[in-house]
Simulated scan of single mutants.
Amino acid sequence: MSHVVQIETQVRDATAVRAGCSRLGLDEPVEGEVRLFSETVMGLAVQLREWRFPVVFDLSTGKSRFDNYQGHWGKRERLDEFLQAYAVEKTKIEARRKGYSVVEQMLADGSIKLALSVGAST
């Protein structure tokens, strides 16, 4: 039986953040205090392509902080791209932890289909 799931992404897993960065060819995330335009925040910082300031994730709450100046300092699509990569990597980590195999398929519209099944991990 097939199940379709929609996920609201909360970023809480540093391993999945690193895997998402690697997947997109981004620099390794940096933990610590980060200066955004008008404030300083703590968390795991990811520098997205073509963004002036990084996105900073508070792994304890799952929330993100960023200043892209309403798209002038970074397009929202780049953040969405990272959140998709994070969600895929987190799903794969958890599925494999439970012994499921995972098959990934990129769809024409840019979405990613993951098929999980009981069996040896791949």
Rank of each mutant, 00 (worst) to 15 (best):
D67I: 02
R52Y: 09
E31N: 13
F66P: 01
L59A: 08
N68F: 03
K63G: 10
K75Q: 07
A16R: 02
R49Y: 09
A16N: 06
L44I: 13
F37I: 10
D67V: 02
P29D: 08
F57R: 09
A19K: 05
L83C: 01
K63C: 05
D13S: 12
D27R: 08
F82A: 00
S60F: 01
L44F: 12
V41K: 11
G74A: 05
Q10L: 15
G62R: 05
W51N: 12
T15H: 08
L83K: 03
N68I: 01
V34N: 15
H72P: 00
G71I: 04
G71D: 04
L26T: 06
S22A: 15
K75G: 11
G71V: 03
H72D: 12
W73A: 14
E50N: 15
R76H: 06
R65P: 02
P54N: 11
D67S: 03
F82V: 01
Q47A: 11
L44W: 04
L79Y: 04
L59N: 05
G32N: 10
E50K: 14
G43L: 09
E31S: 15
P29S: 08
D67L: 00
S64T: 03
W51A: 13
R49L: 11
W73Y: 15
N68Y: 04
Q47W: 12
P29T: 09
F66T: 01
V11S: 07
A16G: 09
Q84K: 11
G25M: 07
A14T: 09
G20H: 01
Q10V: 03
D27N: 13
R18N: 06
V56F: 10
E33F: 12
L48R: 03
K75L: 03
L79T: 00
H72G: 00
T40Q: 11
H72L: 11
F82I: 05
L48I: 12
D13Q: 10
L26R: 02
D67F: 02
E77G: 02
Q47G: 07
L44D: 09
L79M: 03
R18S: 07
H72A: 13
R49Q: 14
S22P: 00
Q84F: 00
P29M: 06
S38A: 15
S38R: 14
M42K: 13
Y69P: 00
K63M: 10
K63W: 08
W51D: 09
N68R: 04
V56M: 13
V55H: 02
A14R: 11
A45E: 10
F37S: 15
K75I: 01
W51C: 12
S22V: 02
D67C: 04
Q10G: 12
G32T: 11
R23Q: 05
R12S: 07
D67T: 02
T9I: 08
S60I: 01
T15P: 00
R12V: 15
T40K: 14
Q47F: 12
W73S: 12
Y69E: 09
H72V: 00
D27P: 08
L26E: 06
T61H: 04
G74Q: 05
T15F: 06
K63A: 13
L24Y: 02
A45M: 09
Q10N: 11
W51V: 12
Q10M: 11
S22I: 09
W73I: 00
T40E: 15
E50S: 13
K75W: 10
G43F: 07
H72Q: 10
V41F: 09
K63V: 10
G20R: 01
R76L: 08
V55T: 05
M42F: 08
P29R: 03
T61W: 02
E33W: 14
L79N: 00
